[in-house]
Simulated scan of single mutants.
Amino acid sequence: MTMAMAMACFASRQAIAFNQILAASVVPVVILYLLLQCPIISGISQGATK
C-alpha cells in the first residue's frame, strides 16, 4: 500500500482525521532525517566550501 492510499484510509465519509493524516505524513520524514542527519549535514558542508 502506498503512502497516499494509507492516508486516504484515514478519511471517511463523516469526517477527515487531519491530525492522523498529518502525523502519518510528518513522522516518517522526521525519522528519515534523524537517521540520515550526519550524511546530510556533511554533504551540505562539503558543498558550501567548494
Results as ranks from 00 to 15, higher is better:
F18P: 06
M1R: 14
I40N: 00
I41G: 05
L34G: 11
S45R: 13
Q37H: 13
I40Y: 03
L36C: 15
A11F: 09
Q14G: 02
G47F: 03
C38F: 13
A4T: 13
P39H: 04
A4C: 06
G43C: 15
G43M: 13
A23I: 12
Q20V: 11
A17E: 13
K50W: 03
I16R: 15
Q14T: 06
Q20M: 13
M7V: 14
G47R: 06
L34I: 08
S25F: 01
I21C: 03
A4G: 12
Y33E: 15
Y33S: 15
Q14A: 04
I21N: 01
F18W: 15
I40M: 08
A11Q: 03
S45L: 14
C9Y: 04
I44V: 14
F18K: 10
I44E: 13
Q46W: 03
L36I: 07
P28K: 01
Q46C: 06
A23R: 11
K50G: 02
L36S: 13
Q20S: 14
T49W: 11
I31P: 01
V26W: 01
S12E: 04
A23L: 11
V30N: 01
A4M: 09
V26N: 01
Y33T: 15
A6E: 10
N19Q: 14
T2W: 00
T2V: 01
A17W: 06
Q20F: 07
A15Y: 06
G47W: 08
I40A: 05
G43F: 12
K50C: 06
Q37A: 15
K50E: 06
A6P: 00
F10W: 10
A4L: 10
P28W: 00
Q46I: 05
A15M: 12
I40V: 03
I41H: 10
A6Q: 15
N19I: 09
M3T: 03
S12Q: 04
M7I: 10
K50H: 07
A15C: 14
V26P: 01
I44L: 14
F18D: 14
L35V: 05
A17F: 02
M5E: 14
Q20L: 11
I31K: 07
M5R: 08
A15R: 15
A48T: 07
G47H: 04
M7L: 10
N19A: 13
I21G: 01
A48V: 15
A48N: 02
I31D: 05
I16A: 11
T49G: 09
A23M: 09
N19S: 15
L35Q: 00
A8M: 09
I44A: 14
S45M: 12
A24N: 01
A24F: 03
L34D: 10
S45G: 05
P28L: 01
S12D: 02
P39G: 07
Q20P: 00
M3N: 03
I41T: 11
T2H: 04
L36W: 08
C38N: 06
A4H: 05
S12K: 02
A4D: 12
A11W: 02
V30H: 00
C38Y: 10
G47T: 10
F10E: 04
P39W: 00
A8N: 09
P28G: 09
V26Y: 00
A24I: 02
A23P: 02
F10V: 06
T49L: 09
Y33D: 15
M7C: 09
A17D: 14
V30C: 02
L22F: 12
